[in-house]
């Protein structure tokens, strides 16, 4: 051992930690993108859907938002296989995260759409726009400005929730770090290092969000 055992071990474990980081980024990115697409449709359904659609979507969002993500991930891991859907731990975790993301984004979209004054869509109708034209050109651009800040918040939540995948055996950044700690017995520095990486990821997401907000803000 030299004077800097942590730096030595960090260098020795760079492959394992980079693999973990890669998995964390991959699963978070996929969950955010797919979950946001799902959430967009959920939000539209909650706002404009008929009674049955609204009831079904309400059940989905209430159920998911009312249970811990942790339980959701375990449920995807243990319950999907016995219903005949065979998944890897990564897939099960991804499904859990994207369902979580979808329910939150769904509520964000619904809130943003309902916050737009009625007169806007009425004005759209009055000049002869179809529903989809009205939605794309009148409502969505206004809703987007409302959605962005809370959506960025939801995205950072997903990155943080991805640590829970370590429990079902996905070697993401946290589990990769724990594996290195168990071998080297250097606890605190490695945990701090992992924490710094999570912070860097979320800080980057927030900066990206700010940039997007400036782009879409009205002059």
């Amino acid at each position: 051992m030299t004077d800097y055992p942590f730096l030595m071990e960090l260098w020795a474990a760079r492959g394992a930690i980079l693999n973990g980081l890669g998995l964390t980024v991959a699963v978070s990115l996929l969950a955010i993108v797919l979950g946001s697409i799902l959430g967009l449709f959920v939000g539209i359904g909650l706002t404009y859907g008929g009674g049955m659609v609204r009831f079904a979507l309400r059940c989905y969002t209430e159920l998911i938002r009312g249970t811990p993500v942790f339980v959701l991930i375990l449920a995807c891991f243990y319950i999907l296989p016995v219903t005949g859907i065979q998944t890897t731990a990564f897939q099960a975790g991804l499904i859990g995260l994207l369902l979580f993301c979808g329910s939150h984004v769904g509520e964000i979209v619904r809130g943003a759409l309902q916050a737009i004054p009625r007169g806007q869509s009425e004005a759209g109708k009055a000049i002869g726009l179809s529903f989809s034209q009205n939605f794309v050109y009148v409502l969505m651009p206004q809703a987007l400005r409302q959605i962005l800040p809370t959506w960025v918040n939801a995205a950072t939540e997903i990155v943080k929730a991805s640590t829970l995948l370590s429990v079902i055996g996905v070697t993401e950044l946290l589990l990769a770090t724990q594996q290195v700690i168990s071998r080297t017995f250097i606890g605190m520095p490695f945990y701090l290092f992992a924490g710094a990486i999570y912070f860097a990821i979320n800080f980057a997401i927030e900066q990206l969000g700010r940039y997007a907000e400036r782009k879409v803000s009205l002059p």
Partner: peptide
């Protein structure tokens, strides 16, 4: 498991 030497753990080669 993957975090309890010498029973089951990741070596330096991952």
């Amino acid at each position: 498991g993957s975090t309890n030497p010498p029973w089951h753990f990741k070596g330096a080669n991952d």
